[in-house]
């Protein structure tokens, strides 16, 4: 395509008069409150999930499956005979959801604010160490562009999470409607919502088209794009709900496994 060449540079913006320095702002509202709450919640969940998925079992021998319930952090369970006991089977799985969430457009917004203060809030000054700003144009943050690859991979454990939830309904030859099974179903549902509301999926399904009405194929993709767009509007809610529930699901199954609680269930 001809036209203005890509090499045409933008004019350099003349400097403004914004306050500089971490937290410098004219804002009077509690701009730091939401990032602070998010930081605490995210850090607690992420740290727990890492420790539980990678360290608990090798260090403490805590089981991650009990009575037909498998912790979602270990699904699909890959535990070959040659695997030493000091390596958690979660290692084979966790990098997928970790990569998916780390490169997620919503979480990027959140953690750039609360971990990197880049910016700490809208119209709020940043630390001076950000002067050599390159963000997603250079390593490591340029890797955020690989989000769609993690999206493809994330559907593999998601498929097995539904299988696990379904399998948990039958135990010892009986149908079991237990709280653990309900948690696994809710977990699979929320993770499905989180995955389907992904910005990259929305793009791949239909957003990359310029013409929605041009053919039957593009009209089908347009319909799918509309559905995913309605889910995408609530991507933040899906992200938090699924993160919290996957954490609680693991906590519940581990507490069951060590006998700290019992699973209320109807059996027939």
């Amino acid at each position: 395509m001809t036209g203005i060449p890509a090499s045409l540079g933008l004019p350099r913006k003349p400097p403004g008069t914004a306050r500089q320095g971490l937290g410098a702002t004219g804002r009077l509202d509690d701009w730091a409150l939401a990032p602070a709450v998010q930081a605490i919640l995210f850090t607690v969940c992420a740290t727990y999930l890492f420790v539980s998925g990678i360290l608990f079992t090798p260090l403490l021998g805590t089981p991650y499956e009990v009575d037909g319930y498998l912790s979602p952090l270990f699904s699909p369970l890959f535990r070959p005979d040659w695997l030493p006991t000091w390596i958690s089977p979660g290692l084979f799985i966790l990098w997928v959801p970790l990569g998916f969430r780390a490169t997620c457009y919503y979480y990027r917004k959140a953690y750039y604010r609360f971990y990197f203060a880049d910016p700490p809030g809208c119209a709020v000054g940043e630390p001076s160490l950000h002067k050599r700003y390159a963000m997603e144009t250079r390593f490591p943050f340029i890797l955020q562009n690989l989000h769609r690859l993690f999206l493809y991979l994330a559907f593999i454990p998601l498929f097995f999470l539904w299988i696990d939830a379904g399998v948990s309904v039958v135990h010892d030859g009986q149908v079991r409607l237990g709280l653990g099974g309900a948690i696994l179903f809710v977990n699979a549902f929320l993770l499905t919502g989180y995955s389907l509301s992904c910005h990259s999926l929305r793009h791949i399904v239909g957003g990359q088209l310029d013409c929605f009405s041009c053919s039957r194929r593009t009209r089908v993709r347009y319909t799918l794009w509309q559905r995913l767009t309605s889910l995408n509007l609530h991507h933040m809610a899906w992200a938090w709900a699924s993160l919290i529930v996957v954490t609680l699901a693991d906590v519940y199954i581990r507490l069951l496994a060590i006998g700290a609680i019992a699973d209320p269930a109807i059996r027939f």
Binding site: M1, A6, S7, L10, R108, K109, P119, E136
Partner: peptide, 27 residues
Amino acid sequence: MHPIDQADRREYLKDSGGIGFCNITKC
């Protein structure tokens, strides 16, 4: 995204426009 526009601005967006500088903080 205009249905009849034919230009491809992706190289411009990446190299000149600096779209990678945006870290989507939604302000």
